[in-house]
Design a protein around this nucleic acid. Structure first.
Lengths: 356, 356
DNA sequence: TTGAAAGCGCTACCAT
DNA sequence: ATGGTAGCGCTTTCAA
């Protein structure tokens, strides 16, 4: 067979033929080496090549050498699609998150990707925008591509997934029947309240995130409980997580409760909005007003004063979820393991110094 | 054939058999309906089913109805992997970006995804970390999965890709032989300088981003030229794009040039760092010191004072790149079209008011 | 130790 | 207008 050598990124490939149009390449004519090419190059059967490829079954040492040489010579890469068709498996993982544009999720996505990258998997990401329809859509697409597992941050009731035969792990969400990883929201909420109390706030505004988000409610409830135990005065204010909505809420906050001397924000985005509004109104931070956020998104370190916040280990959460999913994939059984990662207080500039 | 009905997300699926272990599902036993199941359900051949599926070839109206009914009844979804194997095509797009954790890229990724989502494609994202090795790795993986096109923000010399037969469009980067979309860096750099000059800065520090990034150099050069034309005093300072490095550079900046009254930052991350340091040193902004950023990442609106900056339409860039790629895919020829999106000045709080 | 061949799910050609 | 069938690239019995 006549092979044409083409060089991609310094790696050599061999094609049976290439058609180049004057204005560029054309699409459908590629023919990278197949297993048959390797077989004939090495003078063996495809079965043998397959054996050396997968390292299973007997194959003579010399034959193996020959095949490996042929593989190298042709720069042969097995076609994942064909493999996938046969096995009903692929080297693909599906990840659905609400919105990669929300600064909490890139770190998570990176954690997932970095872990699986190491294991030879690749991940397809879908943004659900918290819409069930989009999520279903992605799950179906994933399934059609034979993904080996799915990590989801669905907030929906997904108990019905039980019929789906692909391992699923939930990230930052919990459902009884599914393995999951999340951060300890309760400890976080409690800690936030404790810090503010300890450091001298006596009139605290507790901001409550969206009702449909379990995480938001957990941290809220824990903080609420803690405040309730104290002698401090406090009030509760609802807010959405978007920056713009939060900015509105912040205005409202300072209008209604001008004497607030401590704010527990629903998350960092909200905290940033509150901080901005507070600064605009000339509040002294942290002396006149303490603010504590939640999440520790990259932005928190970047504002001035830097935001004191409850750190959720987003990257690690992604990693752990990935690790757990891999376990499920190997065991071929849903482990129902629930991993709760611990949070930590990041003592930055919007809270007073210890003992203050 | 005996079918078991399973419900996923309110949608019904039919499987030939399911094995459920007590602790959960097992992995490999799925059998969603195939084209053969549909055929036998409808009492026709697979060829006929294929025809109605793809809407090509003659098929009697009644037959079509019957097939469609069967499809619905079995909740049949064509197996993308099998299709892909036959066609050497898939409904997949590859996107490689440096790092999704860098706030400039989520918007871009979202633009790409939203566009292709609409067209029935799904995108695989890879983080290259600016490493050639990782990038090659992803390109190969994409290729092995028969992606139909690739969008890349590679900064490497990729002229060698010419051998690759998959359409590629470059995003935020330019190479002679490839179609690309980017924002008008020159106009941006020039505009930034003009704004600062117009608004009264007379001693400007121009920060220069990493040398290997063409975009950074273009905007730098344009700003430099503009400053050179003016009578203002100015100096140049090199910086990396990471926040921490930028913070160091910022300290250095104020140590060496305490009289600076205007800073053109290499990007918003750097601007935020500078802003932070300036605030920490008690500078009056914008009266004593103007700062202008570049990119308009979400953070910019969120710091206080909000960052005046040159807006790059990241989301739109993603969209346009996707659109262009689709064009290339359809025409099966590399269009060599270069799209340059225009930038705009976001007049926020780190620059003085017009005429100031 | 190796090879021939069936088949994964689908499409497209060629008959009918 | 419809069906039979080869074949996409690969893996895996089953024979040899």
């Amino acid at each position: 067979m006549e092979l044409i050598k083409i060089t991609v990124y310094g790696l050599n490939f061999f094609a049976r033929y290439i058609i180049l149009s004057v204005t560029g390449y054309t699409g459908k004519v590629r023919h990278l080496a197949t297993i048959r090419d390797v077989a004939s190059e090495a003078g063996v059967s495809v079965a043998t090549v397959s054996r050396v490829l997968n390292g299973k079954g007997y194959v003579n040492e010399n034959t193996r050498k020959a095949v490996e040489a042929a593989i190298r010579k042709l720069a042969y890469k097995p076609n994942e699609v064909a493999r996938s068709l046969y096995h009903h498996q692929s080297k693909l993982i599906g990840l659905v998150i609400p919105d990669i544009t929300n600064p909490f999720f890139p770190e998570i996505a990176r954690g997932v990707e970095d872990f699986f990258q190491e294991e030879g998997y690749h991940v397809m990401i879908g943004n659900s925008d918290e819409s069930r329809e989009k999520e279903v859509n992605y799950i179906e697409a994933f399934s059609q591509h034979n993904v080996m597992g799915i990590i989801s941050t669905s907030s929906d009731d997904i108990s019905q997934w039980a019929g789906l035969d692909i391992p699923v792990v939930l990230l930052d969400r919990i459902q009884d029947d599914f393995p999951s990883v999340c951060a300890d929201q309760e400890a976080g909420g409690k800690l936030a309240a404790q810090i503010l109390l300890e450091r001298g706030s006596r009139n605290i505004t507790l901001m409550r995130g969206p009702h449909h988000l379990r995480t938001a409610q957990e941290r809220f409830l824990a903080a609420l409980t803690e405040l309730g135990r104290s002698s401090a005065r406090f009030q509760v204010l609802n807010t959405a997580f978007s920056y713009h909505h939060a900015l509105e809420t912040a205005k409202q906050l300072f209008d209604c409760y001008p004497d607030t001397d401590g704010i527990i924000a629903a998350n960092d985005m909200v905290a940033a909005a509150v901080l901005r509004e507070a600064l605009a109104r000339g509040k002294k931070i942290p002396d006149g007003l303490q603010i504590i956020g939640f999440d520790d998104i990259p932005i928190s370190q970047l504002v001035y004063p830097a935001l004191s916040t409850i750190h959720q280990p987003a990257y690690e959460m992604g990693m752990e979820a990935a690790k757990l999913l891999l376990e499920c994939m190997h065991q071929q059984t849903n482990l129902k393991k629930k991993i709760k990662l611990s949070i930590a207080f990041k003592d930055r500039e919007t809270t007073r110094k210890e003992g203050g």
